[in-house]
Amino acid sequence: MDPSAAVRGAQRSGGLLAVHAHPDDETLATGALLATWAAARRPVTVVTCTRGERGEVIGTELAHLEGDGRALAEHRSGELAAALLALGVDDQVFLDTVPGPATDGTTGPLTGDRFEDSGMAWVGTGRAGASAELPPHAFVAAHAGDAARRLARVLRSRRPDVVVTYEPDGGYGHPDHVRAHEVTVRAVELAAAEGEGGQPPHVVPVVLWAAHDESALRSAYAALAGAAVADVLTGDEARLGRPDPEGPLPSVAVPGAWIDLTVDVAPVRTRQAGGAAGPRHPGDGRARGRRRCGSRRVLRAEQRGPRAAAADGGVPVRSGVRAAGPGVVARVVGPGRHVARRRAPGSLTA
């Protein structure tokens, strides 16, 4: 089936599907977007790739959970449920629970292994890399084609108009975030290329990458470095390091001219604050989340399929984003300039 025909012939759901690596990432990276979509009474699905078994615990209240992967995963799963309730999201899927057929025609049965938090190590300022030791079922070690096929099944089932995940470097280099981006890209391609189990192909019209305007992020860093913030920090918070306004920025920061869609936090501030308050520990990213100040969330957008298929999910997608045919990605490569380039699947084999 011609994927573009699937766009032309299918009734659009107006739905949004977010793909994240661990519990709390959905709120820290895309909370305002999820809350905005939910407030518009559009379908919202969050796919979580792991349960955050190797998250860092900051503070003494929950210190007993650190190092106990199963207990931490259970706790963080509860936090995730509470955060989604606050955001208004009622559809959440752990990627490793997506059932697979006995055979998919290429690599045989899908594995039943659990996808676990791969962990990370700080390798520089605002930069994470691979952990020295991987758990037995680390997400980064799982078969990427398996993970992508599972996600493609969710895409065909939910049929979202918009998919959102991290930018290619995972926001700050966390291996699970990078893999989540790669798996999402491949899943979007698979869902468009073929149907399965009675579900027709589905072309996702718009793919968004979570990002920050670098100038806004530096302004937020400067505000956090000021005395006004220091005066209100107490206990464990007072011992947290604050970012250098003049220092290096994580990969989530991009030039403002590259931003295609900005989501205003103000109308959903209460919902997002509720989602952030649900988790009581920082996980792998809570310390980062503490310094994500400002009134707006910014997203970098890709658009697939005919322009007529652009989503209306309560957040308008800017009309100037270039439309690209199936198998081609429209990517912002510099101020005011877009380029369509075929994306090689790389190691993500089907």
Rank of each mutant, 00 (worst) to 15 (best):
Q11W: 13
S13D: 14
S13T: 15
L16V: 14
V19P: 01
H22A: 02
H22P: 00
H22M: 07
D24W: 02
T27E: 01
T30Q: 12
T36Y: 09
W37K: 10
R41T: 14
R42N: 11
V46K: 03
T50E: 03
E66H: 05
D68K: 08
A71I: 04
A71E: 06
S77D: 11
S77P: 02
G78N: 04
A81E: 01
A83T: 01
L84Y: 00
A86R: 00
L87T: 01
G88R: 02
V89Q: 00
F94H: 15
V98G: 07
P101Y: 04
T103Q: 06
G105C: 05
T107R: 13
F115L: 13
G124F: 07
A128P: 04
A130N: 06
L134F: 09
A141V: 05
H143I: 07
A144N: 07
R149C: 02
A152F: 08
R156H: 05
P160D: 10
V164E: 00
T165V: 05
D169Y: 05
D176V: 04
R179H: 15
E182G: 10
V185W: 01
R186A: 09
R186L: 02
V188P: 01
V188S: 00
G195E: 08
G195I: 06
P201E: 06
V203K: 01
V207T: 11
V207C: 09
S219Q: 14
A220T: 15
A220V: 15
Y221F: 14
A222E: 13
A222Y: 05
A222G: 13
L224A: 14
G226E: 14
G226S: 15
E237L: 12
E237M: 11
A238E: 08
P248H: 08
P248V: 07
L249F: 12
L249P: 11
L249T: 11
V254Q: 05
G256S: 12
W258Y: 06
I259F: 05
R271G: 00
R271S: 03
G275R: 01
A277I: 05
A277L: 10
P279Y: 08
R280I: 04
R280G: 03
D284H: 05
R290S: 11
C293F: 09
S295I: 11
S295W: 10
R296Y: 11
R297V: 07
R307K: 13
R307S: 15
A309K: 03
P316M: 13
V317K: 05
A323I: 06
R331W: 09
V332C: 06
V332M: 02
V333D: 11
G334P: 00
P335M: 01
G336R: 02
R341P: 04
G346F: 09
L348H: 11
L348Q: 09
